[in-house]
Computed example of a mutant assay.
Amino acid sequence: MLLPAGAVPVVSVEEHYESLLSDVYTWLMGGFDEAKSSNLAFFKNRHIASSSSGIALDLGAGSGFQSIPLAELGFNVTAIDLSQKLLGELRTNATSQSLVTMPSIAINKSITTINDDILNFKDHLSSPCELIICMTDTITYLKSKQDALTISQDSFSSLEAGGKLVLTFRDLSAELKDTDRFIPVRSDENIIFTCFLEYEPETVKIHDIVYIKKQDSWVLNKSCYRKIRLSAEWVEEQLAVIGFSIEESSNSGGFQTIVAVK
Rank of each mutant, 00 (worst) to 15 (best):
F32T: 02
F42Q: 13
G254C: 08
F255I: 10
E247A: 12
Y17H: 12
I80W: 06
I183L: 09
R91Y: 05
R229M: 09
K109R: 08
L28G: 07
L70N: 05
E72D: 06
V219M: 06
G6H: 06
E175W: 03
M135S: 04
C134Y: 10
I111F: 11
K164Q: 14
L21M: 15
Y211Q: 08
I133W: 11
G243R: 05
V11S: 02
I111L: 03
L57M: 15
M102L: 07
D137H: 04
M1N: 11
E198H: 01
I209M: 11
I212S: 13
Q146T: 04
V13I: 11
F43L: 12
I111V: 12
G74V: 07
K36I: 02
V100W: 11
E237H: 09
T179C: 08
G254R: 03
Q66D: 14
A260H: 03
L197E: 12
S22N: 09
S144P: 02
S51G: 10
K44F: 11
D216V: 01
V13F: 04
V77M: 14
S110W: 08
K213W: 00
V166M: 12
S126I: 12
L142T: 08
S83D: 03
A232L: 09
S152F: 10
L99V: 13
N221C: 08
C134N: 13
A56Q: 08
A5R: 13
G88R: 07
D137K: 07
Y199V: 00
T179R: 11
S152V: 02
T194N: 15
